Amino acid sequence: MIVVEQVGPLATIQDLGRPGWFDSGVGPAGAADRASFRLANRLVGNPEAYAGIEVLLGGLVLRADRHRTVAVTGAPAPATVDGTPVGHATVLELAAGRTLRLGLAGAGLRSYVAVRGGIDVPPTLGSRSRDTLSGIGPRPLRSGDRLPIGPAPHTLPSVEFAPMAEMNTDTLTIRAVLGPRDDWFVDAGALFGGEWTVSTDTDRVGARLDRHAGPPLRRSVTHELPTEGMALGSIQVPPSGQPVVFLADHPISGGYPVVAVVVDADIDAVAQARPGQALRIHRA
């Protein structure tokens, strides 16, 4: 077991999701920043799909019941073990009774905590991920939770530290492919002009964008669109004209037109973009 002593704004159990359930109306969910999540598992010697903890902004405190090997990646929340600062993206050895505390990250949104053996809660539809849109999977963590840890894998951690690029706090640049409904807009190319700002209306479902400068996205086709499938990274445009970039817990179908889709390699960066951060979209 590992004991949750304190939770910040939100902490959920995540793995790499539950693909294959679209026909039942269930999306994949999973870690919002997949690269950071995979790295945390690799650092502690877990297979990449083992369940860990996704932490919004920081504020999580964990206490080891016995010796545990852990790692923290993603948004660089300052970490301490019994008050002593420890490195980000490093292998941490917690003796029994020792406490790992995450402060508030100065950049990025989501940190990841992996424990050697993985968080061993019961899976739902083949995954231990929390889907915040549907409510499927283990509930968000609360103070006092005791999380079961699975048996340690046979592989051993191969590195003690993984160099990571600094989280971007300046203007974030991402790439997107136009379509499938770019012909529903007066000027779909306006998506690529000027800057957008990440709205405060941002969560695991999607990141809403406000126009910082440049022309708005105005529809030329005003009738309703029949409900159609929505992919991860879809940029859907509701009547307000504020695009929403769909993230891990996005709905699997929708009735608003999708003007473009963010390339897969840039979705993790959107998941780490903070409200108020400037964002530019380039044509892929």
Rank of each mutant, 00 (worst) to 15 (best):
G87L: 13
R218L: 15
S127L: 14
T84I: 14
D187N: 15
G58S: 00
E48T: 12
D266N: 05
Q6H: 10
P157H: 07
G150D: 02
G144P: 02
D145H: 02
Q14M: 04
P243L: 00
A89P: 01
W21R: 02
G126W: 09
A105Q: 13
A284N: 01
I119V: 12
L56T: 13
G137M: 07
S253W: 04
P138Q: 04
P28T: 00
P251K: 01
R139W: 03
L56G: 00
A207Q: 06
M164C: 10
V121T: 00
R130Y: 07
R34M: 04
V186K: 14
A248C: 12
P251Y: 03
V261R: 13
F161T: 08
P78V: 00
A75H: 08
L100M: 11
G206C: 08
T200W: 08
S253L: 07
G276P: 05
D33S: 03
V91H: 05
T132Y: 01
H154C: 13
G135H: 10
G214M: 02
R42N: 12
P76C: 00
W21V: 00
D264E: 12
P123S: 14
D15I: 12
T227A: 13
T90H: 15
A71E: 10
A190D: 14
V91W: 06
G189V: 08
S127N: 13
G17R: 04
V4T: 03
G103E: 02
H67D: 12
S234P: 08
G45P: 11
G135E: 03
F246Y: 13
L94H: 02
W21D: 01
V115M: 06
R130T: 10
A260D: 09
A96R: 15
A107I: 11
G45L: 05
P138T: 06
P148L: 03
D266W: 05
T202H: 14
A278D: 13
A188M: 09
S36L: 01
D264G: 07
P239C: 05
Q277P: 09
G8K: 10
D15G: 02
G74W: 02
V121L: 01
L104D: 12
G189S: 13
D268R: 03
P180W: 09
P180I: 12
L178V: 05
G214E: 04
D65E: 15
T69S: 04
E160P: 00
S129D: 11
A278V: 05
P138A: 06
